[in-house]
Structures are given as structure tokens and as C-alpha cells.
């Protein structure tokens, strides 16, 4: 039987669980969210874990801020085994502290860093690829389709530069929204939130941008493969100047 430990679909709960497992010297076969569908060979174990946010300080004290950040980025990834990867990454970090970043020859470290960097890189891409349109009441609204769950860290980026704007970003794949009200960022599930506002039908600024985009490419240097490398087609649908080309 596989011993699967269950946590409450949030990062704090996961950290608390991992902490308990390590203190008790328990080696999990896997760690899964509460809505996990067990197979015949799974033995689900639900420990009594609290949701104490103080765990953040404990993790930092035992390792470092950087390591906590890596764990958080891993948590945001789409990887099926991310919980177990976080567990092993943390376990090794207790021993090696920040030296862990130069231990890529350990498989669990190289895997962890590869995935967290993927999240970070995708977030960076969307700092560029996110396209807002203006809703009728001046709210900026964007839809994105990232592979990883970056909507919160992305909103932090926009909060700094668009601090005087209301904005909403929707993750189409996960049906979640991040909402900024000129003060704080809220993450809201699409089941509990509906957007009634419409955008202006014809958008002059959008037209200007498309015109600029068309003009700026140099015909005699055309290189579609290179463009695709940098801006993969899977993102095009929500990048307004590209959506016509699909």
C-alpha cells in the first residue's frame, strides 16, 4: 500500500504537513490535495494539521528565505508530483541550507530547481504577454492561459506598475481571478465570481497597437521559427496582436 498524506489545498497547510512528517521521521509515498482520487493501492492518511502561518517563520529559520521562495514556486507549478518534490527539497535543504542551489547533481534538487525555474520563467513571460483591455468602467481586464498557477505572483508585478488602476486577471485554464482594488490583491474562484462588465466593442487603442505590430517587423528579415521560439503558439490566443494569426 502507498501511504498518501493529505493536506488542505493551500500552501500553509502543505508546509505544516511536511514539517510534521519530517519531525516524526515519516517517509510519505506521496502527498496530495484533499480532492485526490485514490487508487486501489492508496492508503489515505489525514493527520491533524493546523493552518498556522507561523510555519513560514519556522521554515525560514530552519533554511532560508530563498528556499521558502523556491518551495512556493514549486507549489505553483503544474507538476503532478510537486508535493513530494517539495518534501525532498526541503529535507535536503535542512542539511545543506543555501548550498542546496549548487547541488544540482542530486536528482531531487535538479528536478526541483528545474521546475521552480520554469514557473519563474513563465511568470516573466507573462509580465510581457499579458494584454489588458479596458472595461466600460475603466477597469483593466486580462485573460491568460499559463501552464503554471502564476496569477498571484503576476498580479504582484502589475500592482507595482499600475498601482492607480483597478485590474482583474483571469486564468482561463483554472477559472480563477486575481483582482486588484488599488490597495490589495485578492484571488477569487470563478465559481463565486462573475464578470458582467463588457468591454468596448471597437477599440481604437487596440487597433493602433495591431497596426504598430504589423509595421515593426522587417520583411527581409522574416523569421517565423525564431518568433515561435520566443512566443510559443499556445499563448497566442490571448495575445491580442497574435490572435488574428491563429
Amino acid at each position: 500500500m502507498n501511504n498518501i498524506y493529505i493536506y488542505n489545498n493551500n500552501f500553509i497547510s502543505l508546509l505544516n504537513l511536511i514539517n510534521i512528517l519530517i519531525i516524526n521521521n515519516t517517509k510519505p509515498d506521496n502527498i496530495k490535495q484533499i480532492d485526490y482520487n485514490p487508487t486501489l493501492f492508496d492508503n489515505l492518511i489525514k493527520l491533524n494539521i493546523d493552518n498556522n502561518e507561523n510555519i513560514i517563520n519556522i521554515i525560514i529559520k530552519n533554511t532560508s528565505k530563498n528556499i521558502l521562495k523556491t518551495m512556493y514556486y514549486l507549489y505553483l507549478s503544474r507538476d503532478d508530483n510537486k508535493e513530494l518534490i517539495i518534501y525532498y527539497f526541503y529535507k535536503n535543504s535542512l542539511k545543506y541550507k543555501d548550498n542546496i542551489y549548487s547541488m544540482r547533481n542530486l536528482k531531487c534538487v535538479s528536478e526541483a530547481l528545474k521546475i521552480s525555474q520554469y514557473v519563474s520563467r513563465e511568470n516573466h513571460k507573462f509580465k510581457g504577454f499579458t494584454r489588458f483591455k479596458e472595461l466600460k468602467n475603466n477597469i483593466l481586464y486580462a485573460e491568460i492561459n499559463p501552464t503554471n498557477n502564476i496569477i498571484y505572483i503576476l498580479a504582484i508585478h502589475f500592482k507595482k506598475r499600475l498601482s492607480n488602476e483597478y485590474f482583474i486577471i483571469k486564468d482561463i485554464t483554472r477559472n480563477i481571478f486575481s483582482i486588484y482594488d488599488k490597495k490589495d490583491i485578492y484571488i477569487v474562484n470563478g465559481d463565486n465570481f462573475r464578470l458582467y462588465e463588457e468591454s468596448h466593442k471597437s477599440d481604437f487603442i487596440e487597433d493602433l497597437w495591431k497596426e504598430f505590430y504589423k509595421t515593426i517587423g522587417i520583411e527581409s528579415r522574416k523569421n517565423n521559427r525564431c518568433r515561435m521560439n520566443f512566443m510559443p503558439k499556445k499563448y497566442w490566443k490571448y495575445i491580442v496582436e497574435m490572435s488574428d494569426e491563429i
Binding site: H124, K127, G128, F129, K160, R161, L162, S163, N164, E165, Y213, I216, G217, I218, E219, R221, K222, N223, N224, R225, C226, R227, N229, F230, M231, I239, E241, M242
Partner: peptide, 21 residues
């Protein structure tokens, strides 16, 4: 208090048909 900031590493927003940022 205004609009905008600069990202030290730079950000590419799109890529033109010639593959340039």
C-alpha cells in the same frame, strides 16, 4: 504615485514577424 516602473532585467512584450523582441 504615477504609472509605471522599470524592470531591471527588461521585459519583451511581443516578438515581431522577424523574431525580434
Amino acid at each position: 504615485g504615477g504609472i509605471g516602473n522599470a524592470a531591471f532585467s527588461g521585459i519583451c512584450h511581443s516578438f515581431s514577424s522577424d523574431g525580434r523582441c
